[in-house]
Nucleic acid binder design. Structure first.
Lengths: 111, 111
DNA sequence: TTGACATATTCCTATATAGGAATATAATAA
DNA sequence: TTATTATATTCCTATATAGGAATATGTCAA
């Protein structure tokens, strides 16, 4: 079996750093593909493809205006991620004193 | 190019539903592999493999006691996910009235 | 030692990308 | 129509899984 498809759920769609970047740049605005191309500095097909994945999982919506397509974030679809991770939030202050140890452990393992 | 490796960061590690389940079951407890095998109902190599990925990205820590290995969650490593998703949280209440439309749109597209 | 228990690793395969390059489709203007 | 602008799609390939099956490694007890 291969990995869970990127379009399976928001977790997988957002695992790709570039797709997170798209959502960040969009923010609360509505932007056309070309505006995204400019702000992201990627080529147009690449932007369209990532938008395609995001749209398929419902993380963005598209609105057609003339020859343009305006995209915007559907923040609600990120709620499952928030809901899953939020319960852990109360623990990293408690275990904060151990953070250094853990990072040390990771560093030494990279060798 | 293929997908970002599962061990690249917590986002990718946690994209796999089973790995989220492992972290949920662990919670704040420290559990041995066999205890996890029982509670998850998966075979042992499967549990060990997922633990291996989680350990490599630092999402769990391992402690050896006799022939057992006790695992526990390193919640701090989930902070990047929380920090990324939290800013969006304020929007889904505002756009809550649109949620039904979006779900409708998704449904009709599934055909 | 030897056996039993606990856990990790190796080998295998089907599958799904992400990105580059080229091209197709759609909509508007001249 | 035809050219142009805006965006999507198709074709290609290297790559990295996840899971099953089998086996290896490590540790303790008798």
């Amino acid at each position: 079996m291969a990995r869970t498809p990127t379009t399976f759920d928001p977790f997988n769609a957002v695992a790709e750093p570039k797709r997170r970047k798209v959502l960040e740049v969009l923010g609360t605005q509505e932007l056309s593909v070309n505006e995204l191309v400019e702000r992201l500095g990627w080529n147009q097909p690449m932007v369209s493809k990532h938008l395609g994945v995001l749209k398929e999982v419902g993380l963005v919506s598209e609105r057609r205006v003339g020859r343009q397509r305006l995209y915007r974030v559907n923040a609600e679809r990120l709620k499952p991620i928030y809901d899953w991770v939020a319960p852990f939030e109360r623990y990293w202050s408690e275990s904060y004193e151990r953070l250094d140890d853990i990072l040390e452990e990771l560093k030494s393992k990279e060798k």
